[in-house]
């Protein structure tokens, strides 16, 4: 019935990943908090479970750092919601972080996948 998996299958988010995920979600346009949470869960194929307390804290943090901006708006089903959108500074930060993550996952993949990687030290 529900599309959510059971708690045992979920992986809690690594420290610092939530910020990047939020920023990535906002690339496609403004969203409210609930939409962001849903989107992250859905896109990770329900692997990531977003703790909502942490989510709003992260949103507050990103807003403070001026990576995102927020204003109140109305949702498609006519509910008042606070919409977050990416700023130029946020976009820049996201690009930076994305590269970092890609290098990290590649390195992890190389090691965990059992292949020898001559250039691991450099990474």
């Amino acid at each position: 019935m529900t599309t959510q998996r059971t708690a045992a299958d979920r992986i809690s988010l690594l420290q610092g990943t939530l910020d990047v995920l939020i920023l990535k979600t906002l690339v496609f346009g403004p969203r409210h908090g609930q939409g962001i949470a849903r989107s992250i869960q859905r896109q990770s194929e329900e692997v990531f479970f977003v703790d909502h307390g942490s989510l709003y804290l992260a949103l507050q943090r990103l807003e403070d750092k001026r990576f995102i901006s927020a204003k109140w708006g109305v949702s498609e089903n006519n509910r008042k919601a606070r919409y977050y959108s990416l700023t130029a500074k946020g976009r820049e930060h996201l690009a930076e972080k994305t590269t970092e993550w890609q290098r990290l996952t590649r390195a992890m993949e190389l090691i965990l996948g059992g292949k020898r990687a001559p250039d691991v030290e450099e990474a």
């Binding site: 609930q34 949470a37 849903r38 509910r79 008042k80 919601a81 606070r82």
Partner: peptide, 21 residues
């Protein structure tokens, strides 16, 4: 303002769950 946002979140989530049946 923050409390409002949480209320909005809960309402939106409920809407969606309702839509799922």
């Amino acid at each position: 303002d923050f409390a409002d946002e949480i209320q909005a979140h809960l309402a939106l989530e409920a809407d969606e769950l309702e839509a799922e049946g």
